[in-house]
Amino acid sequence: MSDAPGLTVEHVRGTVTVVAVTGELDHHSSPGLRSGVLELVRGGHPHVVLDVSGVAFCDSSGLSALINLWHNARADGGSLVLCSVPGRLDRLLRMTGLDQILARASTVEEALAGHPALRDADGPG
């Protein structure tokens, strides 16, 4: 993941990984986002919580990367949750209808607290 600028793996627990994304999601950075996160998904961490609080800009290439990650995570039996979505990105997701497809949480903590893969890993509660 070190060759994917703007991505930081913040937390790994079981099959769930938190990845913080910073900067712009555009045609220059989207391939790095895709390859970095897909490396995690295919490496046994198919449940990804993507902290996008540090995303300053997102264009159609960025949206395409998010859709691609969602499809790939699901294909590997996982999930993608966006959290801490900034206002501009939130509006873009709503305008394109992606807010109906991509799961979102207010914070990383909220995403992890309600994550089914973590509940299943912890056993009966």
Rank of each mutant, 00 (worst) to 15 (best):
M1Y: 07
M1D: 07
S2L: 11
A4T: 11
A4R: 11
A4M: 12
A4G: 01
E10G: 12
E10Y: 03
H11D: 00
H11M: 07
V12P: 00
R13M: 10
G14M: 13
V16Q: 04
V19S: 10
V21C: 02
V21P: 01
T22H: 08
T22V: 03
G23S: 03
E24V: 10
E24D: 14
D26A: 04
H27I: 12
S30A: 15
P31A: 03
L33S: 08
L33A: 10
S35W: 08
G36L: 08
G36I: 10
L40G: 05
L40H: 07
V41S: 04
R42S: 03
G43S: 09
G44H: 11
G44F: 01
P46L: 01
P46A: 14
H47G: 09
H47V: 07
V49A: 03
D51Y: 10
V52Q: 02
S53I: 07
S53K: 08
S53V: 01
S53N: 06
G54Y: 01
G54W: 04
V55G: 03
V55L: 12
A56N: 06
F57I: 11
D59T: 13
D59S: 05
S60C: 05
S61R: 01
G62N: 08
G62T: 04
G62E: 09
L63Q: 09
L66N: 00
N68G: 05
N68H: 05
N68Y: 10
L69N: 04
N72H: 14
R74G: 13
A75D: 15
D76G: 05
G77H: 09
L80S: 04
V81H: 00
C83I: 05
S84Q: 13
S84F: 00
V85I: 06
P86C: 03
G87N: 10
R88F: 03
L89M: 15
L89Q: 09
D90K: 13
D90P: 06
R91L: 11
L92D: 02
L93Y: 04
R94Q: 12
R94S: 08
G97T: 14
G97F: 10
Q100C: 10
L102R: 02
L102G: 00
L102P: 01
A103N: 13
A103Q: 13
R104M: 07
R104L: 03
S106W: 05
V108S: 07
V108C: 03
V108T: 14
E109Y: 12
E110A: 15
E110N: 04
E110R: 11
E110M: 00
L112E: 10
L112K: 09
A113N: 10
G114E: 02
A117G: 08
R119D: 02
A121V: 06
D122M: 02
G123C: 04
G123P: 00
P124Y: 05
P124D: 12
G125C: 02
G125L: 13
